[in-house]
């Protein structure tokens, strides 16, 4: 059913993909942001010709340029860069750029892999551009420019999907459950071209300067709360045997089937 993607997508759809520089969660090295790369993959699938790829950020950073090249390794000749200085909000330049371009569809990731990572950008853009906003999509089933509607699939927890009809133009953030991005090929990455647009109006993010940023602390696992009334109860709660130390082993087929079924029901997976 999911694979039944009707190819009713109209021609000449104007699509823009917003990409950012990601960061590997373990090595913290710059890389293609996973969700943005998926957004680009979806864009390349739907409108390979008319796709515009936008990056708003500083170009002074050589690591960032490397990552932009990696995006171009997905088979892109040109990438538009809005040269926004560091520590500056990218919403305003992007807004102006998108107002000029008037795309039918804007795709982006759910949230950035560095910085504040609030995931607000698509919402701010949709509010300012008066476009619909669909979060966490996995696929676009069809875009019909004549009726002005598109059908998209949204990711729900545990692999479930919801079908949503949305007015054009719209912004969508792409979920990790969307198709994995294609491999970045070194050759086309090296030969791609960065078209750098200078940005006139920017907004300095003064609020962020008050913030203290530190490496993420590990959050303690929540312990079972014991509302003990007596010292003995508290003692018992503190020394109680931790559940599930070793598993139960059952040798009788019937008995084990019952036990399995009970466990499945207890875990509410049936």
């Amino acid at each position: 059913m999911l694979k039944d993607i009707s190819k009713t997508t109209s021609k000449n759809i104007k699509m823009s993909v917003l990409i950012s520089v990601g960061e590997h969660p373990l090595s913290a090295r710059p890389r293609r942001a996973e969700q943005d790369a998926r957004a680009l993959e979806l864009g390349l699938k739907l409108a390979p010709e008319s796709l515009k790829i936008l990056y708003a950020g500083s170009t002074g950073d050589s690591a960032a340029t490397e990552v932009l090249k990696e995006y171009m390794g997905m088979g892109i000749d040109q990438l538009e860069v809005l040269d926004v200085p560091p520590k500056t909000d990218v919403t305003l330049p992007l807004l102006e750029k998108l107002q000029q371009d008037c795309p039918d569809v804007v795709l982006t990731g759910i949230r950035a892999e560095n910085g504040e990572s609030s995931g607000m950008l698509p919402y701010l853009l949709s509010e300012q551009l008066n476009m619909a906003m669909v979060p966490a999509i996995t696929d676009i089933l069809c875009i019909d420019k004549t009726t002005g509607f598109a059908e998209v699939l949204q990711a729900l927890p545990r692999g479930q999907r919801r079908k949503v009809k949305v007015n054009l133009p719209f912004i969508a953030s792409v979920d990790m459950a969307a198709a994995a991005p294609r491999q970045s090929a070194y050759g086309s990455a090296m030969r791609g071209h960065l078209k750098i647009d200078p940005v006139t109006r920017t907004m300095h993010d003064a609020e962020q300067e008050q913030w203290q940023i530190s490496p993420a602390q590990a959050r303690p696992k929540r312990l079972k709360i014991v509302k003990a009334k007596t010292a003995a109860d508290r003692f018992k709660a503190a020394t109680a045997k931790v559940q599930g130390g070793s598993g139960k082993v059952i040798y009788d087929n019937k008995e084990s089937a019952e036990a399995i079924l009970k466990l499945l029901k207890d875990e509410k997976v049936l």
């Binding site: 390794g73 997905m74 088979g75 294609r182 491999q183 970045s184 090929a185 070194y186 050759g187 086309s188």
Partner: peptide, 12 residues
């Protein structure tokens, strides 16, 4: 790999 970006399996 370098030009087509088509390393199969888990290559990518």
């Amino acid at each position: 790999t370098l030009e087509k970006g088509q390393t199969p399996g888990k290559g990518a």
